Simulated assay, not measured.
Amino acid sequence: MLYNEDEFLQLSGIQHFAFCRRQWALAYIEMQWLENVRTVEGKILHENAHNPSLKEKRGDLLIVRAMPIHSCEMGVSGECDIVEFHKDKDGVPLSGREGTYRAVPVEYKRGKPKTDDVDLLQVTAQAMCLEEMLCCTIPYGYIYYGETKHRLKVEFNEEIRTKVKNIFAEMHKYENQQYTPKVKTSKKCNACSLKDICLPVLNKKKSVASYIDKMISEEEEQ
């Protein structure tokens, strides 16, 4: 199945969806959003990385910022913070450039490396879009973390690629149904910029059915 352009989802949404399906739905389906310190810091970090006027050439290395990407197979579109094109005899040709190049995506994040794969999912999705657009294979990329000022090399194996495809398929399902799921509360709710909209504390309240059952039980015991 191939998606039309008007069906494309925002690629960047995969990190929100992986963090919390409800957060993603509130932001991308219901179009609700609030800023917090983390989101503001993230925007500042991305300002230079997303400046499309900044292109660099260092010998056999070409650096392209804010490169638009898409995938008809996954039905997503977005931008790469940075794509490094390394001159390589086994690479792909680029319009207006001599020789062939190997593409390496670099994603910028404000914090430090995480214990989960949320950041890896996003840069893997970028690599998969680039592969579809350039007809090439991209085995690895990098994630630059602002807190450590260091970039981490990440491999794009079949397991993470399959997970990316499955997540986008689930995102399309929710988008088509215009469905905002409920989720269990956890510690990460405190760091969410949408907690005042989501109101996760309400999810801790008992359901009406549980309340009625409790009242009936109390009456029978009297």
Rank of each mutant, 00 (worst) to 15 (best):
E132G: 06
M133H: 07
M133R: 08
M133T: 07
M133F: 04
L134K: 09
L134G: 06
L134N: 08
L134A: 11
C135A: 12
C135Q: 15
C135G: 08
C136E: 02
C136N: 03
C136A: 08
C136Y: 01
T137H: 12
T137E: 13
I138D: 02
I138T: 06
P139W: 00
Y140M: 11
Y142Q: 05
Y142M: 10
Y142K: 09
I143R: 07
I143D: 04
Y144A: 09
Y144Q: 10
Y145M: 04
Y145R: 08
G146R: 07
E147N: 07
E147V: 08
T148A: 04
T148G: 02
K149H: 12
K149Q: 14
H150K: 14
H150Y: 09
H150L: 12
R151W: 13
R151D: 09
L152C: 09
L152H: 12
K153P: 06
K153D: 08
K153R: 15
K153C: 14
K153L: 12
V154E: 08
V154K: 09
V154R: 11
E155T: 13
E155A: 10
E155L: 14
E155P: 05
E155G: 03
F156W: 07
N157P: 05
E158V: 01
E159R: 14
E159I: 11
E159P: 02
E159L: 10
R161T: 05
T162N: 10
K163Y: 06
V164K: 00
K165D: 03
K165I: 11
N166T: 13
N166D: 14
N166Q: 15
I167F: 00
I167P: 00
F168Y: 13
A169D: 05
A169R: 12
A169S: 11
A169M: 07
E170H: 01
E170I: 00
E170W: 00
E170L: 01
M171A: 04
H172M: 01
H172T: 01
K173L: 15
